[in-house]
């Protein structure tokens, strides 16, 4: 039984079958990649997992509880954090404040009227936030305005914001999309480090094969809304069905 169990999920947008009978099981403490050509339904699947879309049929269970019908903030409070394709951070706030917010969210839940405390008097949370900034090598930027940073740093910050919550499942939506090769490699290193240090279950949606094969322990190949195969990276590499999905029907 995996930590995330997707069973028989269907999602239709008008005449388009975006997801057709998707079954997926993500085991705890693994890095699971979901790959597939453009339009395979990767993003739709991710949006179902985080509560942004509700599937027509099927079930999505996280740690034995259904996530369907819950709003994104409730699903996050269950222990699922998400990294976006373009980093979503609080641009008007400082780096430190960006990391303090998830610390408060984790301690106080989705709403609390703590209007008479002072942010930086919360010693335990400040320590937590500083530790994570040290871990992602950003402590020297702690008082910087988040919007003024480079894209790579924004990505790092977003990871730090997710990690400080100690999620049970980290969802990554094309974390290296639009990045230069060097940045991509840095991100891969960062993710590897996180995986080794923290034992976080990760599900990565990606179409960059280099990223996928450097990180993933299990790979699910999605094509036209349906999973084709699920296997280890070694087996996926030479799988004829995968090559077919990516390169088109082989002739002869």
């Amino acid at each position: 039984m995996g930590i995330l169990e997707v069973k028989g999920v269907n999602k239709r947008f008008g005449g388009l079958q975006a997801l057709g009978d998707v079954n997926l099981s993500v085991e705890e403490n693994t890095v699971h990649a979901i790959i597939g050509p453009n339009g395979a339904g990767k993003s739709t699947l991710l949006n179902v997992l985080v509560g942004k879309l509700i599937p027509d049929t099927g079930s999505v269970m996280f740690d034995g509880q259904s996530v369907l019908g819950r709003s994104p903030h409730e699903i996050n409070q269950m222990g699922i954090s998400r990294v976006f394709q373009t980093p979503e951070i609080f641009g008007d706030l400082t780096v430190m404040e960006n990391v303090m917010i998830p610390c408060f969210a984790r301690r106080d839940g989705s709403f609390r009227l703590h209007a008479f405390e002072t942010v930086f008097n919360e010693k335990a949370l400040v320590e937590q936030a500083e530790q994570i900034l040290i871990d992602v090598n950003m402590i020297d930027k702690r008082d910087m305005h988040a919007a003024s940073m480079s894209r790579g740093d924004k990505r790092r910050l977003e990871m730090a914001m997710c990690l400080v919550q100690e999620p049970r499942l980290l969802l990554l939506d094309e974390p290296t999309a639009g990045m230069a090769r060097a940045d991509t490699n840095n991100t891969i290193e960062l993710l590897k480090e996180i995986n080794e240090k923290r034992d976080i279950t990760m599900a990565i949606i990606e179409h960059d094969m280099h990223v996928v094969f450097s990180l993933a322990e299990r790979i699910t190949v999605l094509a036209q809304g349906t999973p084709l195969v699920e296997d280890t990276p070694e087996n996926i590499k030479g799988h004829p069905k995968v090559q077919e999905a990516y390169l088109g029907q082989a002739h002869g």
């Binding site: 709003s71 903030h73 954090s81 979503e88 951070i89 609080f90 008007d92 917010i101 984790r106």
Partner: peptide, 15 residues
């Protein structure tokens, strides 16, 4: 201030 800055991120941070 987080509301002003990025509500999307706020929701996905459990708030």
């Amino acid at each position: 201030r987080a509301v002003k800055s990025n509500q999307q991120r706020m929701k996905y941070t459990g708030l």
